[in-house]
Design a protein around this nucleic acid. Structure first.
Lengths: 158, 158
DNA sequence: CACAACTTGACAACTAGTTTCCAATAATGG
DNA sequence: CCATTATTGGAAACTAGTTGTCAAGTTGTG
């Protein structure tokens, strides 16, 4: 017997497909946008995590902020340091785990990326109402919360 | 000088971040959902492309339907054939390029995946109105279209 | 028919993430 | 103070996609 999806669930399926497609396009366009800055979408996001924190972060902290694994973040961080966007500060709280700060080049590139993004976004929303945009943001956020994986952390007690 | 993002563009940025996060969670949850069927989100989508077409498709046709490259689709197709979800039909229009059809197992697994998804989706939309869901779907679709890469196809004339 | 252009599958190398494992360094608490 | 536990970086192998190349088969046109 087949389960009958409600009309709401049917539209949810369409939203899911739309999220997959928009996600792909955003990464593609984002890569194009910051390509002249010698950045990719992924590295831009890492720069953003540190820039928005307003202070140097360790690799695991960056991973936490980005919602990816610490190993995934570390890879990007290492490359960003190699390419001169990050520099290591000593971490008074952990000798093996340096804090990564934006270099001059890193700050300049991130600022340029933000400008490019603002320009791009301004063009992208033409003809859409603020109300619709807010609704969409709220609905997506609601899904995000419902999808939250309550993976019990190792030490968690009930 | 910094470009001033409009209020609309500022919310768009939030929507972008929400899309990234929801995308990640959907793939994660989707993998969990179809794991007992020996499927992944990616392979499920490939099965879906052929199932929804209602007829056997070649690898490039599957890629086209999914919006990924033909090589990416081919990889999944080959694995799905290895694992008994697909079988090759001869393609009367192209000898080197077989048409892939769902096997009995493929059809059974896809039907089960659809049931699981309907069940999951029904739970996920609780408390959201049909109107908001439609609005969100429309807005995302609008973005998708605006983000459409008009990459001039090789033979395209202006 | 012949030749050029396109399509296709196979393969390799790459990005970006994941999981798993190890070894070394912290942190904790008995 | 010392032993256990947690955190961290590094490396390897994996998923899932990308681009690029190659050779072989297909198609269109003169």
């Amino acid at each position: 017997m087949t389960i009958e999806p409600s009309p709401e669930a049917a539209i949810l399926t369409e939203i899911m497909l739309a999220v997959f497609r928009v996600n792909g396009r955003l990464l593609e366009k984002g890569d194009q946008l910051v390509e002249p800055l010698k950045l990719t979408s992924a590295r831009w996001q890492v720069l953003g995590a540190v820039a928005l924190a307003g202070k140097p972060l360790s690799a695991p902290q960056i991973a936490e902020a980005m919602g990816i694994t610490r190993q995934g973040a570390q890879k990007q961080v290492n490359k960003l340091e190699e390419d001169g966007f990050f520099e290591q500060n000593i971490n008074p709280r952990h000798q093996r785990s340096p804090l990564y700060a934006l270099t001059e080049q890193g700050m300049r590139s991130f600022a340029k990326a933000m400008d490019l993004e603002a320009l791009w976004a301004n063009g992208l929303v033409a003809g859409l109402t603020l109300q619709d945009l807010k609704k969409t943001q709220q609905t997506l956020y609601a899904f995000y919360q419902r999808l939250d994986s309550p993976v019990p952390k190792k030490g968690a007690r009930s």
